[in-house]
């Protein structure tokens, strides 16, 4: 058996990892619900976010928070423009073309980041050093705690936004019945672009917060694929489901890696396969089927 101390350590690591997956999965699901497009380049928003925050941070002489806010907003603008300038034009094309386009975006973003920032691993200075005591002999690294806190905070903010504000409710309306939303004079196209921006901002925040854990290089966006697996485990199209699925695979991952180091990093996909076999609609069903 594992000593209790290790169990707690692995669980906390997994929880933080799961939260990071969850943040990226949020973007996947938001964009999917708004447009029925799965953005396979979403992990790349996270990678670009980390680089951009790093670049701002260097420009500001190492101050993290202004760089963090500005970096996330920059990636938000990138997300908005990707939809407004490109995705909007190809809506209605076959889903295969849209799939390939988003995959291609991933390659383009990775090359672009490599050209701008180089292909080496960089590190970002964050204010999250040391660890916070949890009582007894247990402690949690501050950078991991920051991810967990940020996830909770962002989820609360998003919940309030979507349930309380005029914009948020209109986005729900547009996702439930796009044509009726148009008939009500809701600027559906603009709201979809804003959804892309929100998804990109969340992913960029995840990238910057994960930077102390993963470091920064052009390949960290591939984490997005694990987030996608988590979203599928939870039930694609359901936000709470996606978060739950990501937490689940996040927590399973360090234990599986520890106990079965031969298949390090594979456990999220095994969980996904199991769920697809046993409960193909995911742990939480999508609350409704979209009318075609």
């Amino acid at each position: 058996m594992l000593p209790l101390n290790d169990v707690v350590h692995l669980a906390v690591t997994g929880l933080a990892q799961g939260c990071a997956y969850g943040l990226i999965a949020l973007g996947f699901v938001l964009i999917y619900k708004a447009t029925e497009v799965v953005n396979f380049a979403h992990g790349e928003f996270m990678m670009l976010g980390a680089f951009t925050v790093l670049a701002y941070s260097e420009a500001f002489g190492g101050s993290f928070w202004p760089a963090f806010v500005l970096g996330c907003l920059t990636i938000g603008v990138v997300g908005y423009l990707i939809d407004a300038q490109i995705m909007r034009r190809i809506i209605g094309q076959s889903s295969a073309s849209i799939f390939i386009l988003t995959v291609a975006f991933g390659f383009i973003f990775r090359s672009l980041a490599g050209i701008i920032w180089g292909w080496n691993t960089l590190s970002l200075d964050t204010p999250f050093d040391g660890q916070v005591a949890l009582g007894g002999e247990f402690a949690i690294a501050t950078d991991r705690l920051a991810i967990i806190v940020a996830t909770i905070l962002l989820c609360v903010l998003l919940y309030l936004f979507f349930s309380r504000t005029r914009y948020g409710i209109a986005m729900q309306a547009a996702s439930q019945n796009q044509l009726a939303a148009y008939y009500m004079g809701i600027p559906v196209k603009r709201l979809v672009s804003i959804t892309w921006a929100i998804g990109a901002i969340i992913a960029a925040a995840a990238g910057a917060l994960l930077a102390p854990v993963t470091q920064i290089d052009t390949t960290i966006g591939l984490l997005g694929i694990k987030a996608l697996a988590g979203a599928i485990v939870g039930g694609f199209g359901s936000i709470p489901g996606a978060l739950l699925g990501c937490l689940l695979i996040g927590i399973i991952e360090p234990f599986a890696d520890y106990l079965l180091p031969e298949i390090k990093g594979v456990s999220p996909y095994i969980v996904m396969l199991l769920v697809l076999f046993l409960r193909p609609e995911g742990l939480m069903k999508q609350t409704f089927k979209k009318k075609v």
Partner: peptide
């Protein structure tokens, strides 16, 4: 009819007044 199925009645009405 095409109402917004998962919004409440009053939210549906308010969406009519979006602008």
């Amino acid at each position: 009819r095409e109402v917004f199925p998962f919004l409440s009645v009053v939210e549906n009405l308010e969406m009519g007044a979006y602008n």
